[in-house]
Structure formats: C-alpha cells, structure tokens
Amino acid sequence: MDYFLQQLINGLTLGGIYALIALGYTMVYGIIQLINFAHGEFFAAGGYMGVILLSYLAASGAGPYVCLAGALILTMGYCAVLAMAVEKVAYKPLRHSSRLSVLISALGMSIFLQNGLMLTQGVYDKAYPTQMTQGSFQVAGLYISYMQVIIVAVTGILLVALNALVFKTRIGKAMRASAQDKIMSGLVGIDSDRIISLTFAIGAGLAAAAGIMVGFYYGSVHYGMGFVPGIKAFAAAVLGGIGNVTGAMIGGALIGIIEVFAAGYLSSEYKDVFAFVILIAVLYFRPTGIMGENVDDTRV
C-alpha cells in the first residue's frame, strides 16, 4: 500500500510536468488546428535557459528560493518571446496555406531549434544544481522530497492560473471566441493575430517551466530532451481531448501516473512505451479523447 501511494505521488509529480507541456499543444491546436511539432523545443530551451539563469543568480548570492523563482519567471518570459518569434517567422506567413505546409514548417522549426541548442550549448548533458532543493521529509511512511513539493506547487499554481486566465478573464474569453470562429471574433473586434501570438507565448511559457522542473527531477538537461517528453505530452493532450484545456491537465496526470506505475510494477525498461500505446489506443478507439466532443464546456 505504501509503495502504491509512493508511486502515485511520483506519478502525479511527473504528470504535472506533462500537463504543463500538453497545454501548449492543446491550446495551439485549439486556436489554429496545428500540431506544433516544435513545441517540445520550447521545453528544452526552457531547461537550458533555466540552468544558465540559476547559475547566474546563485553567483549573485541570492537565496535558493529567490534564485528558483527568478529563473522560473525569466525563463518563462524568454520562451514566450521565442515562441512568438517562431510563430511569426514559421507559421504566420502560412496562415492561409494548407495544413500540411504548416506542419512541415513546424517540423523544420523543431530541427532548427534543436540544432541551435546543440550548437550553442554543446552535445553533453548539463547538470542541474539539485543541491538547491535537496532533502526530504516523511509523512505517514511516505518519502516526499522538497523538490517534489516544489514541482507540485509550481505546477499547481500554473495550472490554476491558466485555468483562471482562460475561463475567467476578458482575454481568455477572446481566446475561446477566436478558437471557435476566427472571422466572427474579428468582426467583434478581436485581433486574432494577437490572440494566436499570445497563445503560443502562454504555451511556451508553461513548457519552459516544465523544462526547469524536469531539470531538477532528472538532475540534468540535454539538447535533445524535447523529443520524448514532447511526444508523451502530445499523447496526454490527445488522451484528454485535443483542444481541451482541462483535458490536457487530466491527460498529463494520467500519462505520468501510468508511466510511473508501469515502471514500478512492470519494467522500467518499457516505461516510455506506455505513452505511445495509450496514444495509439486513444486514436483508434476514441479519437476525441476523454473530454472530447460530448464534454464541450471546457474546450477553448
């Protein structure tokens, strides 16, 4: 039982990270029906920018939590701007082209960004200052590390904030309207170009936060790190119902839990396989995902 609970906590930690990445896929899909294959690269870029900023901030003598918060906010901002630039360069000019052209452009962007990261940061893993968040405590026989607490807290705050943004604010209303009918939203005065740009920025900001969390979780980052978690998060978005914000959160949590359980109870060698099995199964049996179609309320 303890083992089960322990794994559940680990799974939720990982799942929160997947949820953060999945949101970017689902929001961009919701608004321009594009699977943004470059999205995983924002996550990787965030992982790198995070560790770079952490070392600068630590060198300046700030306390660990100040460093962490500062690095998190600046990295999210950096990736938001990066994503807006990518959108402007690679997707906006193709707004009226076929979906395939945009998809190919996304693949190209992914390769470009990944190689850019490799050329500027090198091919070796870059270690995270995990000592910053070292230590753990025990509750009811379960070991919980401070790092896990931080990951869950940061993820939780971001998910709640995003939910409030999308469903409670004026700009969120405009985002949902644009996702539903771009011409009509223009006819009420919503500039869809700006909404699209903003959507990319938000998605990349969340992915950037996930990049830092993963850096702490695994202890290092790597230039190609965007690929596998990117696809897992994509699976999470599809599982939740692509285009659905709440679905992405649920899908992320589920994928994380399933992965950790599969590794714990079956074999850790196969842990990466399960996300793909789920992806294929969902596409085959229920392409609309958990929250798709019938549960319309929470689509963007």
Binding site: R170, K173, A177, Q180, D181, V188, I190, D297
Partner: peptide
C-alpha cells in the same frame, strides 16, 4: 460562439 454562454457572447460584442 456556440461554446460561450449567452452572456459571454454579449460581452464580446463590447470587447
């Protein structure tokens, strides 16, 4: 906007 409420639709008119 089919997935927005009536009130939200109206509010968007004044966006």
């Amino acid at each position: 906007f089919p997935r927005l409420t009536v009130q939200e639709n109206l509010e968007l008119g004044a966006f």
